[in-house]
Design a protein around this nucleic acid. Structure first.
Lengths: 191, 191
DNA sequence: GTCTATACGTCGATAGAC
DNA sequence: GTCTATCGACGTATAGAC
């Protein structure tokens, strides 16, 4: 059963970290929200820092793996289709794992030392995927923009924003939103 | 001299809140960073909550006022020019007052009660400015998009992202970045 | 595995001397 | 205006019983 309890703890941490922020959430908050004492919680986790690190690593890695898979699945190697796939993947990810995505996007400053360095590396890795697609499209004269780095940051920021306002019980499904973002994002760079 | 000290405190708070976050910053941190004791700090401020509220209100109000002014200055009432003005204003604002902008954008969850409600109202007010321009452009068949609300959120998220990666000592001036974002943003909605 | 009890640091905020 | 000293609450984390 240890595996289930661990996931329950992680989910509770994600919920509270995304709501109140890492620093404002206490170990007691997390434990009490799943009817545990803080002492019991320490049977499953090493400390608070590692809990945040685990969450950020897991969901950032998932985002990267999904991005690589969805790009590899593009049949004709068309940069437009690749960019669509990246936008769609990012928006869907930020919809389905909204709370975890919020933690990943807002708690980078709460990391320290090697944990921070590693997450920084993962971020660069993810940005590079977008950069490659954008530059491939420009070389093929399908895309048009001034600065690749600015444009990749702009595209990622655009898609990340979804997690800040998307509501599961809202009128718009995450599929609808992903479609609209795909259109908006593609128009942004099409020649 | 009281006025100067107050601004010094606010600037120190902005720096630390943007670096470590509101919850992770102590009153002692703020005081010590300007060679004061925490007890002296309380001569100038009422409490920690009010300090955050003051910062968020001041810079959000500034953003709104600048947005209204820059729109009013558009001569021919062209929606494209208005949208360009909004994008330019938002990006320049997030460049010049980068640290304050980061606090405004990331510490909404740290507000409580009436403070939170008021900032929420200010946010809606700002979003409405963008919505009006987008809908005016669509009515004039200059813009083309599916959902106005999604599009306005997308445009604002896009421009807000600048504060997360812009460096004053970087190769790109905030003017360059604002110009590029104006282009990208406009292309996103042009018919 | 889960608990009670607790060590020990730091927090926001105040009292009162100077 | 600025300080030292301090209060009571709450933070992370551990010890040790069951």
């Amino acid at each position: 059963m240890a595996k289930d309890v661990e996931q329950t703890i992680i989910d509770a941490a994600i919920r509270l970290f995304s709501e109140k922020g890492y620093a404002a959430t206490s170990i007691r908050d997390i434990a009490n929200s799943i009817d545990m004492t803080s002492a019991s919680l320490y049977y499953y986790i090493k400390n608070k820092k590692d809990l945040l690190n685990l969450i950020m690593n897991r969901y950032l890695t998932l985002l990267i793996n999904n991005a690589n898979e969805t790009i590899a699945a593009v049949e004709d190697d068309d940069p437009s289709d690749k960019l669509k796939a990246l936008i769609n993947n990012h928006v869907q990810n930020h919809g389905f794992n909204k709370l975890a995505a919020l933690v990943v996007d807002t708690e980078y400053r709460s990391l320290e030392g090697e944990h921070k360095a590693h997450v920084k590396k993962l971020r660069s890795e993810y940005e590079q995927i977008w950069l490659d697609v954008l530059e491939e499209g420009k070389a093929a004269q399908i895309f048009s923009y001034e600065n690749a780095k600015i444009t990749s940051f702009a595209m990622i920021n655009l898609c990340t924003g979804v997690a800040h306002w998307y509501r599961e019980d809202g009128a718009l499904s995450i599929q609808n939103i992903a479609e609209e973002y795909t259109m908006l994002g593609l128009k942004m760079v099409l020649a």
